[in-house]
């Protein structure tokens, strides 16, 4: 069985902000890490591999430094990996990102199961998985909270819905997106670190893809445009209270009385 896990590198603790005076986007700290939700996806794949025989590959689209997370995945027990990277892919929105990954996935040859994280902590759309499945013309199940059974030609999973849990069986090839809490991701092991130290991380660029139309990638392949970025507005009819704690509590009690909560 062949499993492919999609992982993304996201900013670590850094957060982007608009400088109120200059309108420049400021970055604070530039450290990066693996999207935390993708650790659950990797763990799900490795667990399946341990219980059945399977080959697990990871794929990530990002700048060259995103190779770091592929190395991390190797240390967790992933067999193979590849990075999709090319400046042609810059500025991609969800559609172009998913399309690009779908081209990369096809480089791995035949696969049974693709696993995505629920969402990323930077894009935060939870859309890349379903769009990828659409481009690959395979079914998908989102919000998977439990792998019930892995069979030869299908997988049974629990899908989390707001008021119910739906248990479904889906034939391969298919894609699932897994919830955080589906398992406890393992830490990278030192032994694996040593063993995979020199393992190559192939890079796929535009030239490696079947679809050679540049207009399907990066900003050209992105139907959405960000036309303006801005800081959220301040509310002008607000009251600011600055006083000793005693006075503040008095005012608060009065306000709660006025609002009829006391």
């Amino acid at each position: 069985m062949n499993i492919i896990v999609c992982i993304k590198q996201v900013p670590g603790t850094s957060e982007v902000e608009v400088d109120q005076e200059t309108g420049v986007l400021k970055r604070e700290g530039i450290d990066s890490k693996m999207n935390p939700y993708d650790l659950f996806a990797i763990e799900t794949a490795i667990k399946i591999k341990e219980e059945n025989s399977a080959k697990v590959s990871v794929i990530s689209m990002g700048p060259p430094q995103a190779a770091e997370i592929i190395r991390e995945a190797y240390m967790m027990g992933v067999d193979e990996g590849a990075l999709i990277s090319d400046r042609v892919f810059g500025g991609a929105d969800v559609l172009a990102t998913s399309y690009t990954i779908s081209q990369g996935v096809q480089k791995f040859g035949q696969y049974d199961l693709i696993i995505c994280g629920k969402q990323t902590t930077d894009g935060d759309t939870a859309q890349v998985g379903p769009e990828l499945a659409e481009f690959l013309k395979i079914p998908h199940i989102a919000n998977v909270k439990k792998i019930v059974e892995v069979k030869e030609h299908s997988i049974i999973v629990d899908m989390d819905m707001p008021h119910a849990v739906q248990t479904v069986e889906v034939n391969y090839p298919c894609l699932i997106t897994v919830e955080k809490d589906i398992n406890q991701p393992r830490l990278p092991s030192f032994k694996r670190k040593m063993a995979t130290k020199n393992q190559a991380i192939p890079i796929y660029s535009f030239n490696d893809f079947i679809d050679q139309n540049e207009n399907n990638y990066g900003i050209n392949g992105s139907p959405t445009r960000v036309i303006r970025i801005f800081s959220p507005e301040a509310n002008n009819d607000r009251e600011m209270w600055k006083d000793t704690p005693g006075v503040l509590v008095d005012r608060l009690v009065n306000k709660l009385k006025e609002l009829k909560y006391v």
Partner: peptide
């Protein structure tokens, strides 16, 4: 932006090769 909506909308956007803005 429900479980079903978040599955269905991206599939449709990809099928029609159009934009989707989440949340």
């Amino acid at each position: 932006g429900t479980t079903v909506g978040r599955s269905l909308a991206p599939r449709m956007a990809a099928r029609f090769r159009t934009g989707l803005t989440a949340d």
